[in-house]
Simulated scan of single mutants.
Amino acid sequence: MDVLLILGIALLSTVLMTAFSCILSKILAQNLIEPYWLNVLLFKKRGWRNPLGWVTHYLTGIGFMYLLIFLNDLYPLSLITTILIYGFLEGVLGIVMWGILFKMTHYPHKLNVSWYYVNLIAAHIVFATAALCTY
């Protein structure tokens, strides 16, 4: 498949995933927005407007897109099964990655990590849905 098409799908899927995190943040009155926390933890910048967190988030989304394609090619399943299983697995991988980052940076205690992890699972299922339905 064309690399530009894969990059476009990864971008779209990451946008939808992040939108989901924004909506859940409003519902739970908790900031669960991934680029915000990347800015705080990696770049020591407050706020979601700093581009470094966003670029890091979208680059990670490209990696997750390629992982999704690899898994789907290796073990093709029905669309719904693929979305649920691979979205869940990518969410778990996201939790592992964030867990390492939290350990390395001593995350702020105002972040409810349990809700953040629940968000990561659901958001990666959204990512997988967008990616696989457009791929």
Rank of each mutant, 00 (worst) to 15 (best):
L42Y: 01
F43V: 06
K45H: 07
K45L: 12
K45T: 11
R46S: 11
R46Y: 09
G47P: 07
G47I: 07
G47F: 08
W48T: 08
W48S: 07
W48G: 08
R49W: 09
R49K: 11
N50I: 03
P51K: 02
P51C: 03
P51I: 04
P51M: 00
L52H: 05
L52I: 00
G53W: 02
W54E: 02
V55H: 03
V55P: 13
T56H: 02
T56A: 12
T56C: 09
T56W: 00
H57Q: 12
H57Y: 04
Y58W: 06
L59K: 00
G61S: 09
I62F: 10
I62K: 09
G63M: 08
G63T: 09
G63Q: 03
G63S: 10
G63R: 06
F64Q: 06
F64V: 14
M65I: 10
Y66S: 10
Y66I: 12
L67D: 01
L67F: 15
L68K: 06
L68W: 03
L68M: 14
L68I: 11
I69G: 05
F70V: 12
F70E: 01
F70W: 13
F70N: 11
F70C: 09
L71E: 11
N72H: 08
N72E: 08
N72K: 15
D73W: 05
L74A: 14
Y75K: 15
Y75D: 00
Y75R: 15
P76E: 01
P76L: 00
P76K: 06
P76W: 00
L77T: 08
S78R: 15
L79M: 12
L79P: 01
L79G: 05
L79N: 06
I80C: 06
T81S: 13
T81H: 12
T82C: 10
T82W: 00
I83Q: 07
L84A: 14
L84Q: 08
I85H: 11
I85E: 05
Y86P: 14
Y86I: 03
G87L: 01
G87E: 00
G87C: 05
G87I: 02
F88Y: 01
F88W: 00
F88E: 02
L89A: 09
V92S: 03
L93F: 15
I95T: 05
V96E: 01
V96M: 03
V96H: 01
M97R: 03
W98Q: 08
G99E: 00
G99I: 01
I100F: 00
L101N: 05
L101F: 04
L101Y: 03
F102L: 10
M104I: 07
H106K: 13
H109P: 01
H109K: 14
K110S: 13
L111K: 07
N112D: 14
N112P: 04
V113D: 02
V113L: 07
S114A: 13
W115I: 00
N119H: 12
N119I: 02
L120S: 10
L120K: 03
L120I: 12
L120T: 11
I121M: 06
I121F: 06
A122V: 14
A122L: 15
A123T: 12
A123K: 06
A123C: 08
A123D: 13
H124Q: 14
I125T: 15
V126T: 13
V126C: 13
A128N: 12
A128D: 13
T129L: 05
T129F: 10
T129P: 15
A130W: 02
A130G: 08
A130D: 07
A131L: 02
C133P: 04
C133H: 02
T134A: 06
